[in-house]
């Protein structure tokens, strides 16, 4: 027993070294490209702003206080949370049946369809958003179709507003949700549904009591990923919002690049980061509860 412990001790030390060496390049990249910039932003958020745009080294909490007491900016934050929640909800509702079908389907075509389902990820979201502008615009396919059918006289506003951003963002995030759901369906064995049916459960009861609870890990993972991507999304709101949809990510961009108030922009980023970390904690707690 002692010998084996000693041997495995040496072995695990060697293993640890190997692991560290294997992880080193990745860790360096993460350190230089993620941790350092975030640390720099964190420092920046305490700097002083003079005359609106001149940055001076210093330490002040003004930007945090300013952001958290500014009702306009708080409304923007709230709009972001609302949009992300709505988008996550619809992404889940629309993707769940597809993911369940793909997970269950026992056919050589299954893998091809899985690749097709996530293939939109291969196209830049800029391109996909432009596609949605073609479809949803005042002279887009939806409105011209409705108009030629005589269902509407004036076009329905589907771009440059919240609705358009929500529609496009939902589609942009569906492949991510599909991947997360399929990956999270690990415990979903058809035999549990058969057992439930044999015990007298109707198809609806089988879904509510067995299928849905067993797919919760996938749902939690997918919702977390989609929520994080939605709340930090920039391109789709910027393009489809037409400058009229104010969200947290676009606000950070505007504050930094247009108003040139870097410290305030950094402070908003830090608040967003804190919110995302909080969301991650909620996710970790939920999955532990589910498990």
């Amino acid at each position: 027993m002692t010998t084996s412990t000693a041997t495995s001790g040496i072995g695990s030390q060697g293993r640890t070294l190997h692991l560290v060496m294997l992880m080193l390049p990745g860790m360096l990249i993460v350190a230089f490209c993620l941790i350092l910039p975030v640390a720099w932003l964190f420092r920046m958020s305490f700097n002083l702003t003079v005359d609106g745009s001149v940055i001076r080294e210093g330490f002040t909490l003004d930007h945090y206080v300013g952001f958290l007491t500014d009702t306009f900016r708080l409304r923007i934050a709230w709009a972001s949370v609302l949009l992300s929640t709505v988008v996550t909800f619809f992404t889940l509702i629309l993707t769940y049946p597809i993911a369940l079908f793909l997970y269950r389907w026992n056919s050589p075509w299954r893998n091809i369809l899985v690749v097709l389902a996530i293939s939109p990820l291969l196209v830049s979201s800029v391109v996909r958003t432009f596609g949605w502008m073609l479809i949803l615009g005042d002279n887009g396919w939806v409105n011209s179709g409705l108009h030629s059918l005589g269902l509407v006289t004036a076009p329905i506003r589907l771009t440059n507003n919240f609705t358009g951003v929500a529609i496009a963002l939902t589609e942009v995030l569906m492949p991510v949700m599909a991947l997360a759901l399929i990956a999270g369906f690990g415990r979903l064995d058809h035999i549990y549904e058969e057992a439930a049916a044999s015990l007298g459960a109707t198809p609806l009861k089988v879904f509510l009591r067995i299928t849905l609870p067993l797919s919760l890990p996938g749902i939690a993972l997918g919702c977390m990923l989609c929520f994080l991507q939605a709340i930090s999304s920039f391109i789709t709101p910027q393009l489809l919002g037409g400058g009229r949809v104010f969200l947290i990510a676009t606000e950070i961009y505007d504050t930094a690049m247009i108003t040139l108030n870097w410290p305030l922009s950094a402070a908003i980023s830090m608040v967003l980061l804190a919110a995302l970390i909080a969301a991650l904690f909620v996710y970790a707690r939920t999955t532990r509860f589910v498990e």
Partner: peptide, 10 residues
């Protein structure tokens, strides 16, 4: 299946 009233041990 759910109407058949049969107990199954898998």
């Amino acid at each position: 299946s759910h109407r058949r009233d049969m107990g199954v041990v898998f």
